[in-house]
Nucleic acid binder design. Structure first.
Length: 415
RNA sequence: GGAGAGGUGGCUGAGCGGUUGAAGGCGGCGGUCUCGAAAACCGUUGUACUGUUAUGCAGUACCGAGGGUUCGAAUCCCUCCCUCUCCGCCA
């Protein structure tokens, strides 16, 4: 949600922002008109109430006042109904307005327009044709997509045996690393109510991406960002306790509506994946630095794992509506033969906290909305990158050194 | 799932149709006292929205949420949500 005062003061700027983001379903002028009408109705109602309250005080001595108030009731009720309707209509429209954009966000329509910032790490060299993670998973018996389909649905999968051990080791190691960097570790709910999904900006924008639980005001989470940020809904934080750094390891559920047939090979795009998340709550002036901090963490983890990667500045067309600026980190996938997204790191500014009511008192005692950063630490995709980059001619895979203390083995042997 | 109890300001805790935006206590802020501090005493202290001749003033709303009764509701009625206690079941 953006500040409605900005909408009032600079509707042209809001319109331009929508236009640049390709958002066409919001009529900014209509919203401004709604806001104006609402305020005039409010003024009207408040004047009537003031009169009513005044008259009510006289009722005991003056019976005529009672009749006057009675006479006002119908009109007041009508105006109040109008106010309720206007508020609902305005809120619905406001909920579709996207966040503003950082000056550095590049133009563009899709991921092909993202701007490469740097390429890091050494490419693995092979004297054979490297296999992709799907093929390796089959050879090693560590990824089972067929049985995922059997027990759940196509798009669900099993990590099995040493693959599951490798993934578990990586997720555990990453949580430990983030705790060392000042993050508080959570184990968090994997379902959330509509209010939480709306507050974090997933609704209404990504409604068809969520798995709704039948008969409940609950959906499976698409990311622990939803619950970790919802954690502080309606809270008043203090400058002293910020920045708050939170992390959680959870499954993430996505219907992937509309993406059928896209990147379906392997487990790159699935209905359930697993993620360690980085969340930061901070004062507005600190969010740019916090955004960079999460990126540093992502890069550190990939470097420690020995994975080559590149960082891109995500263009406006590939940036979600809540995002102010986003970095994607793309690991090299040797079998696939290209860079593929493994981490997504967004500065959401006050877009979520305004919806959720997460505020703090600034040095003047004024209440302000805090800023949030939401960034991936690692997901299953990183395990896939390990498989593809650490493979050998027969399909065996070496375990990155930093994970060996947790796996208890240094290779997954083929055959 | 069964049976009870309860949700009031930053916290604690009164109020149970009108002068209650809400007693008392704690905390916070300002002051007196002091070389300084503590203690004591005095004063002050909610949030949101709207309008303004704007670090002020006025109005409206807010006592879990939403409806209703009433000239008027924190107080009465209805619905829902949540929390706690006991019993049962259970990873």
């Amino acid at each position: 949600m953006i500040d409605i005062k900005i909408l009032r003061d600079d509707p042209a700027g809001v319109k331009a922002n929508c236009l640049r983001r390709g958002i066409t379903n919001v009529d900014v002028d209509a919203l401004v008109a709604l806001d104006g009408e609402l305020r005039s109705v409010i003024q009207n109602i408040e004047a009537m109430r003031a009169k009513r309250n005044e008259l009510s005080k006289q009722c005991r001595e003056n019976p005529e006042a009672r009749d006057q108030v009675k006479a006002m009731k119908g009109e007041l009720a009508e105006k109040e109904a109008r106010e309720t309707a206007l508020r609902a209509e305005l809120a619905a429209g406001m909920s579709w307005l996207p966040n503003f954009l950082d000056k550095r966000v590049p133009d563009g329509h899709g991921d092909e327009d993202n701007v490469e910032l740097r390429v890091v790490g050494e490419m693995p060299q092979f004297d054979f044709k490297p296999r992709d993670h799907q093929e390796l998973g089959e050879i090693l018996g560590i990824i089972d997509t067929a049985r995922g389909g059997k027990v759940a649905q196509s798009g669900f999968f099993f990590w099995k045996g040493k693959g599951a051990q490798l993934a578990t080791a990586m997720f555990f190691w990453v949580q430990q690393e983030l705790v060392k960097r000042g993050f508080t570790l959570f184990m968090s709910p994997c379902a959330a109510k509509e209010k939480t999904l709306f507050g974090t900006g997933y609704l209404p924008f990504f409604a068809d991406e969520t798995y709704q639980l039948a008969g409940e005001d609950l959906a499976l989470i698409g990311t622990s960002e939803q619950t970790l940020i919802g954690y502080h809904a309606d809270d008043l934080l203090t400058s002293e306790e910020m920045p708050l750094r939170y992390t959680s390891f959870t499954p993430c559920f996505r219907t992937e509506a509309g993406s059928y047939g896209k990147e379906t090979r392997g487990i790159f795009r699935v209905h359930q994946f697993h993620k360690v998340e980085q969340i930061i709550f901070c004062e507005p002036g600190d969010s740019e630095a916090a955004h960079e901090e999460c990126l540093v963490n992502e890069e550190y983890l990939l470097q420690q794992l020995g994975l080559p990667y590149r960082v891109v500045n995500v263009c406006v067309g590939d940036l979600g509506a809540p995002g102010f600026m986003k970095y994607d980190t793309e690991a090299w996938f040797a079998g696939y033969g290209g860079y593929r997204e493994v981490c997504s790191n967004s500065n959401l500014t006050d877009f979520q906290t305004r919806r959720l009511g997460v505020r703090y008192k600034d040095e003047n005692g004024k209440r302000q909305f805090v800023h949030t950063i939401s960034a991936t630490a690692v997901t299953d995709r990183v395990v896939c990158a390990i498989l593809e980059n650490f493979q050998e001619a027969d399909g065996s895979v070496r375990v990155p050194e930093v994970l060996q203390q947790y796996t208890g083995f240094d290779r997954i042997e083929a055959g």
